[in-house]
Every structure is written in structure tokens, then in C-alpha cells.
């Protein structure tokens, strides 16, 4: 066997092995998409990937069943607003904690990080009463405010702080000599130099907001204000049982933005998870 043939065999074996490992991960996803085109009865028949009859009308039905387009828009705009706000606040706070010397800054960071230890389920009740008292129930405000200033915002601040700490101080001193103020250094030097960290925070935040379920469930009642995770769970019959064909068709549509983000920014996503130490 020549060296070239040996390499080809080796390569083929690798591809086959990896494909075998990928099946458990890819099959449910493909099954979800194909089931979106099946009737409710066929879904629980043979677990075949190709529908016997293609039910394209499932996708039209989604939009008739509830204001799905509006809910889709809600998820998109909330995720974008949350991402932008988290980027602004986490980079400002992270920069201040990394670079401005003030009494108790390390203690403050420790205090903030300790908030990460408190599970969301514990704080949801006080938050519920707070937003009720503020008259913000059944609005999108809690869905924006909580990720920005809650544990996710703290995590983002921590990530940004760590990144800013690693930036060379001399560059900022050169900017000081050039006449920039502290705010100018943050905006014109530190931020452009932190693009990888900002990209990581943006991706993680977008995914976090997109997948948020508990908060919409607690704070939102009107169908028009639902976000996608809540809307998906709402495809039920009058007895409360899931309408699987509609739910899976809707889920197939719901993953499109995330899929697009993954395809466009694969490298940054992997880096961002490596950087944040969280799972995807």
C-alpha cells in the first residue's frame, strides 16, 4: 500500500467514524424539520425522515393559530435591544472595574460575582413583585431589564473586565498623551481593541435572550407580547396537549436566525464559548 493510499484509507475511516458520532446529534434536528411537514398522526408512526405526504399547510397554520409573526418579531427585537444594552453596560462597567482605581473595586467585583451564585428561580419572585409594583407586568420591559442588569449582565461585565485587564496599559497612556479623556480612551481605543470580546458577549447575549423562557412565562400574558419560546409551548389543543406537527414546524422556523448566526460566525461562537467557559 502506497503512502497516498494509506492516507486516503485513514481519512475515510476518520470521516466514517465522525459521521457515526454525529448521527445522535444530527438526527433529532433533521427529524424536527421533517416532522414539521408531517401530519400529527404520522409523527408518532415510523421514525422516518421523509414524510409520506408533505403537509406544507402546517407552516401556514402556525400563523393562523396565534400571532406568530408578531411573536417572532418580539423575539428578534428584544434579543437585539438586550444585546446592544448588554454590550454598552458591560463594556462600560468592565472598563471601569479593570482600569479605574477606586476604593473597593475588587470587593465590588466580588460582590457582583457572588450574585451569579443565586439561581434565577430564587430571584424571580421578588422580581415579579418589583415589576408588578412598578406597573410593568405584561410588558417587554422585564424581558429587557433582567438580562441586562441580572446575572447575565454581570457575567458579560466580568468577561469584558478580564479582557480589558489584558490590554496593554501603554496604549492607553499613549492615548492620554494624545489628548483623549477617559471616556475617549474607552470609546476610541479600548472598544475597537476589544472586538473579539465584544463579539463573544454579543453572541452569548443574543442566544441567552433568544432562549429566555422563564421570564416571558412569568411577566407576559398577552399573546401579542409572547416571545418565541413561550409561543412554541402554546401550540396546544383545547385539552392542553401539544400539537406536535405545528410545534415542530414552528420550532423549525424559530431556529433559522440562530442557525444563520452559527453559519456566519462559527469561529467567533467557538471562541466566545471558550472565552466564557460556558456550554453552547
Amino acid at each position: 500500500m502506497t503512502r497516498r493510499t494509506r492516507q486516503a484509507v485513514y481519512r475515510t475511516c476518520w470521516i466514517l467514524a465522525l459521521s457515526a458520532v454525529a448521527i445522535p446529534f444530527v438526527f433529532p434536528f433533521l427529524w424536527m424539520i421533517s416532522s414539521g411537514f408531517k401530519s400529527a398522526n404520522e409523527i408518532f408512526g415510523q421514525p422516518n425522515l421523509i414524510p409520506s405526504v408533505w403537509h406544507w399547510e402546517n407552516f401556514a397554520e402556525i400563523f393562523r393559530y396565534q400571532p406568530f409573526a408578531r411573536q417572532y418579531f418580539n423575539s428578534i427585537y428584544i434579543a437585539i435591544v438586550v444585546t446592544l444594552l448588554v454590550l454598552v453596560f458591560s463594556s462600560l462597567a468592565g472598563y471601569a472595574l479593570a482600569r479605574i482605581r477606586f476604593a473597593g473595586s475588587a470587593l465590588l467585583m466580588l460582590f457582583l460575582l457572588s450574585a451569579l451564585m443565586v439561581p434565577e428561580e430564587v430571584t424571580i419572585i421578588p422580581n415579579f413583585f418589583l415589576f408588578k409594583w412598578l406597573g410593568l407586568m405584561d410588558t417587554h420591559v422585564p424581558l429587557i431589564v433582567l438580562p441586562v442588569f441580572g446575572s447575565h449582565g454581570i457575567m458579560a461585565t466580568f468577561l469584558m473586565r478580564q479582557y480589558f485587564l489584558a490590554l496593554p496599559k501603554e496604549i492607553e497612556e499613549a492615548a492620554t498623551m494624545d489628548g483623549l479623556s477617559r471616556f475617549g480612551i474607552w470609546m476610541r481605543i479600548a472598544l475597537p481593541m476589544s472586538r473579539p470580546a465584544l463579539a463573544a458577549v454579543a453572541i452569548i447575549t443574543f442566544l441567552f435572550s433568544w432562549n429566555l423562557f422563564l421570564e416571558p412565562l412569568v411577566f407576559v400574558n398577552s399573546l401579542n407580547l409572547f416571545t418565541l419560546p413561550l409561543a412554541l409551548s402554546n401550540f396546544t389543543d383545547p385539552y392542553g396537549l401539544p400539537l406536535w406537527h405545528l410545534q415542530l414546524a414552528a420550532t423549525s422556523l424559530a431556529v433559522i436566525p440562530i442557525l444563520l448566526v452559527y453559519i456566519i460566525a462559527q469561529r467567533q461562537i467557538i471562541e466566545s464559548f471558550a472565552m466564557s467557559g460556558v456550554k453552547g
Binding site: 496604549i171 499613549a174 494624545d178 483623549l180 481593541m193
Partner: peptide, 26 residues
């Protein structure tokens, strides 16, 4: 006064032309 640093302290996201003119732009 103008200072030249040991690590050069050039702005990595700016081209040489922009680096040199940055202070004047400010």
C-alpha cells in the same frame, strides 16, 4: 511633550497613517 514607549504602544486597529495623525485629529 511627546513620549515614545518601550513597547511602541501603537494603536493596533489603526493604520500607520492614522496612528501618526491620531493626536492631531484629537
Amino acid at each position: 511633550v511627546a513620549m515614545v514607549f518601550q513597547s511602541y504602544a501603537l494603536y493596533p486597529h489603526l493604520k500607520v497613517r492614522e496612528n501618526m495623525g491620531f493626536g492631531l485629529k484629537v
